[in-house]
Design a protein around this nucleic acid. Structure first.
Lengths: 140, 140
DNA sequence: CAAATTTCAGTTCCACTGAGATGG
DNA sequence: CCCATCTCAGTGAAACTGAAATTT
């Protein structure tokens, strides 16, 4: 795949190539464990903040309310989270993580660690820190 | 938007944030000139390789055959490219860039330059080169 | 016949919008 | 009355697949 000379040296292009590679590694890594990206983020949000309404979960995980519903349907069907009606505010479901969910999250954490390692393999420890520092400075 | 502690320091996360920002700048920049991402890449491929069949164009620009059709419909309707049947191989259309197309490409080149500048604004010249070098070493 | 080209229709994933039903 | 929550349906961009029609 010859890349166009007009794009080859543009930082936006190089950045998006690198990010596409990371994204591919993530998708494959999570998929081989039977998950998609949102699932991990929802479990992570539950672990970090404890039981919460779906709306709060979505805000904390940075996931749209609609996508939260779809992903939780999946996680609940597999017994990794539980929805229980909130007695104090009956509009809400309180979502909590089950034991199995916590175990699964631990597994996914190490999947994620493995992916970092695979992505950064070509760089030394010092270069990795440099890269992260520079990317952070780009803002947002 | 508080970001999850589990993600905050992962290189894949930071990389994808930076790339999302670049992507947003690109989409907005091209859109405000009336184009989408594929359009620029097709014009760039035409400028670089000269008139070509749609299939070749797609291979050179790294765009799927289906998406080439859609984007060329658009570009042709605006008079930026022309499709003419290939006399030598009647399965093919030969696509060529018009004068107006070449002018438009020049405009888009400078839109793209402006975006690089906006993205990299927080970094010094030396840091920009460092960043590009490190990203390139991640492979692919 | 097999293979390539153009095109159309449809799919998947991601991020999001709109609206309805229930409740505060 | 207004606002929040949960849910479903649908939209639109990006990348891709399948298949039909034509031609080599």
């Amino acid at each position: 795949v010859t890349t166009l000379s007009r794009l080859q040296d543009r930082p936006t292009w190089i950045l998006s190539r690198a990010s596409a590679r990371a994204h591919r590694l993530l998708t494959e890594g999570f998929a081989s464990a039977g998950f998609r990206g949102y699932d991990y983020r929802l479990l992570a949000a539950l672990a970090e903040f404890g039981p919460a309404s779906q709306a709060d979960l979505g805000r904390r995980a940075g996931i749209d309310r609609s996508d939260v519903v779809a992903s939780l349907n999946d996680l609940a069907a597999r017994g990794l989270v539980e929805r229980t009606p909130d007695a104090a505010d009956r509009r809400r479901n309180v979502v909590s993580m089950t034991r199995a969910g916590a175990r699964e999250l631990t597994t996914l954490d190490s999947v994620l660690d493995g992916i970092q390692e695979r992505l950064l393999a070509p760089l030394s420890e010092r270069e990795r820190m440099q890269l992260v520092r520079l990317l952070r400075r780009l803002g947002e």
